Simulated assay, not measured.
Amino acid sequence: MKHTIKNSHISLVTFNYGATIQQLIVKDKNGNDINVVLGFETEEDYKNNPFYIGASIGRYAGRISQGGFSLNGTDYKLHQENGVHLHGGRNGLNKKNWKLEKAETEGESPFVTYAVTSPDLEEGYPGTLKVSVTYRLTGNSLKITYEATTDKTTVINLTNHAYFNLEGRNSILNHELELNSEVFVELDDKLLPTGDFLPVKGTSYDFLSPEVIGAKPGFSGIDDVFVLKGQDPAATLYSPETGIEMKVSTNQRATVVFTPEDLGTTEFLNGTRYGNFSSICFEAQTFPDAPNKPDFPSAVLEPGETYRNETVLQFNVR
């Protein structure tokens, strides 16, 4: 089922399947409407969505090694492919029909809230997990809030997997990117964390000052975990063509930045076609494989606690 909320600045269209963002429409410098996210035509199209486009990801976003993890002396086995458990498994939260919990479509701060329950040991994870996501428009910003509670000690890492393109077509190679991150997580050839952290200085991951993505020396695509300095914005994306600027703020410790080179020949909403490096993702979250890395910040959620992931996307023109 499709739901639309809008104010005088932004229009957001979501599906309850996967609590998915289909469209996010903002004005460019000429007052034209631009859909700044990649989306498919129908909700049915999202049931074959290997790139998780627009979806809510969990129970654990990112990768977990070793086919599972141990928690309080108990081993929990997870689905793995080539030694990697990805984005919550075969049937993660992105493949669930979330329930529309409440919505308010009028006024300057409309919102829609979806909720879903993941039973104990679903996909191997302990605890009955109750999850909600609220998409709220306030002025020229979209705030995405994930909350979760559990009845057993568990691990959790939720995020949204929207793919952004501030021109609504072509690629993001001429977008400017700034990342408020001095350190990134070293990954092995399976994109699993080694446990080490490396400085961005002097590497193709140094976006401490705004740089045109496609002109960055050594750029060959990004699929990496950036440690955030805790100062907002975490990231700023800007399209000189449309004049649209997006600032990303979050309460999370890290963001995965992903620039897919090729999403295949998929046709998107309204027949839109994109080139290579069509889009960029900012997957705000904690560190991947934290359940197997005792030196990483804990991803454990205890009964009585509330997990909360808040990310704000603010749009301006310049």
Rank of each mutant, 00 (worst) to 15 (best):
T255N: 03
Q231W: 01
G264K: 10
F207T: 03
I280F: 08
F197C: 05
L191V: 11
F184Y: 15
N174H: 12
N251Y: 00
S181Y: 03
F277Y: 15
L228W: 01
A215V: 03
G214R: 06
L179R: 01
L187D: 05
L269H: 11
T203R: 12
T255Y: 01
G214E: 03
M246W: 13
D262R: 00
S278I: 05
T250M: 02
H175D: 02
P199L: 01
G264N: 12
S171N: 15
S220I: 08
V185M: 14
I244V: 14
E176S: 09
A215N: 15
L269E: 14
V185R: 04
Q252I: 05
G202D: 03
A234G: 09
F219G: 03
E176L: 06
T194H: 09
L191D: 13
P233L: 04
L228H: 12
N170S: 14
R273Y: 10
F277P: 01
D189M: 08
K216N: 05
L269D: 14
T203M: 06
L198C: 07
G218T: 11
I244H: 07
P233D: 03
N251V: 04
P233H: 06
D188E: 12
T259R: 00
P210H: 08
F277R: 01
I222Y: 15
V257L: 13
I213P: 05
V185E: 13
S220G: 12
F197D: 07
L269T: 10
G230E: 09
G271H: 11
L269N: 07
E182I: 00
G214N: 05
E178K: 15
H175R: 00
F219H: 10
N170Y: 07
R169P: 00
L179M: 13
I213S: 04
E186V: 12
L177P: 12
N165G: 10
G230F: 01
G230A: 01
L177C: 11
D223G: 11
